[in-house]
Design a protein around this nucleic acid. Sequence first.
DNA 1: ATATACTTTCAATAATTTCTGAAACTTCCG
DNA 2: CGGAAGTTTCAGAAATTATTGAAAGTATAT
Lengths: 184, 184
Amino acid sequence: MMQMTPMIETFVFHFGEMGSRWGFNRTVGQILALLVISEEPLSANDIGDCLGISRGNVSMGLKELSSWQLVKTQYKAGDRKDYYQAKGSIWDMANKVFEERRKREIDPTMSILRDIMLDEAANQKEAYAQQQIHQIHDLLENITHWTQSLQSLSPEKLNALMKLGSGVGKVLDLKDKLIQKKVD
Amino acid sequence: MMQMTPMIETFVFHFGEMGSRWGFNRTVGQILALLVISEEPLSANDIGDCLGISRGNVSMGLKELSSWQLVKTQYKAGDRKDYYQAKGSIWDMANKVFEERRKREIDPTMSILRDIMLDEAANQKEAYAQQQIHQIHDLLENITHWTQSLQSLSPEKLNALMKLGSGVGKVLDLKDKLIQKKVD
DNA sequence: ATATACTTTCAATAATTTCTGAAACTTCCG
DNA sequence: CGGAAGTTTCAGAAATTATTGAAAGTATAT
């Protein structure tokens, strides 16, 4: 079984706190952290022992992580236990988290905003409200398209883009110039 | 006082639900939504009446929104009441939310990860853990730089970038070619 | 078919977060 | 100063969310 050295405890517990901000609860955050820093797969009992949580809670946590597609199951020959591992690279996981959050947090809002935009404004106040709602909708739509296109980039390109930092403004200028060339 | 038409109610209540996912609680989300779609400033009592919540809760919600720098206070001549309004454009507000979330969710984690990275790995397991932690740190650092550079872009450029969508990959290729030229 | 070794579910409970409302505080005016 | 009109605070109540653990479920080996 994994032993919890002080370093690993610090990481796992902190990740538990933060996990709750990233859309899952403390236990789920801790389980994910544990799986991420553990090279070999862990059984559900290992996880419960390390974190000092009940067996049922581990099961629910793993179920949640599965729904986020963040864990994979390993079967060991001659052993009935299931063993769990983090699935994919850190990059892949971050992507999964972004995508899942978009689905849960942005998509439902978009749908409601679209409905509202179809309604006829009944008075001056509603007209103003609708105008604001329109802006929020457009913003969310942009963010959605944007993150989707980031997800379709290869990891290398993504990394290049990230490294670009404030150079991103320059690249935009570049693009304008090139388009200009084509027009000429 | 603002009347709650069905359209406005739908929006405000939904925003309340979603607000809790964006880092503030239901009431705070509702108050923000109400202020965003209301053209003229509202008093704390107006807000409480519209949302059916206690005066104390309104006060706490406004305090929270102030700490996010999302509201401004208006004083009306010959009226002792304070009147509140959403501060800045939708874009500005989204930026504030991003920034505030970064401060609360990413920065503390970065600091802990940095500490861990300075420790000497005591054994093979810790070495692997440290390697993973290093990757997480780099990812978060990239995201931080990236979002900071987005924030420093003008709204127009930001919009152009958003509209670019998957074209972003092409622009990157372009950049590589241009750098290549310089090297030649 | 039964025993065994595990996993999952879910009702009850515990922990946490949010909300209320009364009291304390502030500010403005006469 | 005293009081009226407002705002803020915070202890306790209410609501929500997370956790436990025992019971039910599943799969495998004999």
